[in-house]
Amino acid sequence: MRFVLYLALFYLFLPFNRYIDLIAIVIFFIFWHENNWIGLLYALFVGFLIDLYNPSRLGLNILIFLVLGQVIIYVRDFIVQNLPTTIALFSAFFLSRVIVISLLSVTNFHIWSIVITFLAFIPIYLGLHKIVYRQWMKT
């Protein structure tokens, strides 16, 4: 059921992704909590979805999500999951994504979009956690 929820959220957030990168928060949540195969599948699907929305850089988001997703999946075995580590890892994930996209597609930073995404991360992450795992945070 939660996989359908992820899909619904992707489709819901896609039109607003230019202004606030909510998809990055959801895909991070998947990488952080789901198993390798699910993470890989969603990275392919969501990356392709975003790229279809802007075909001029087709393949870029797939590549970023695949690589960064595999990095998160790899490092999560060595990190204790709590709020500070989650925020730190998301920050690294999101900033890497923004920097790589800006470098490869030669676009400018949208500083307000980045700030709003950071501000929205904790409530959305905790909300998703509450919906999927019936608790605000894994302890």
């Binding site: 850089r57 087709l58 393949g59 870029l60 590549l63």
Partner: peptide
């Protein structure tokens, strides 16, 4: 990785 690199 082949898929995104091909598309790019």
């Amino acid at each position: 990785l082949v898929l995104p690199i091909t598309l790019l």
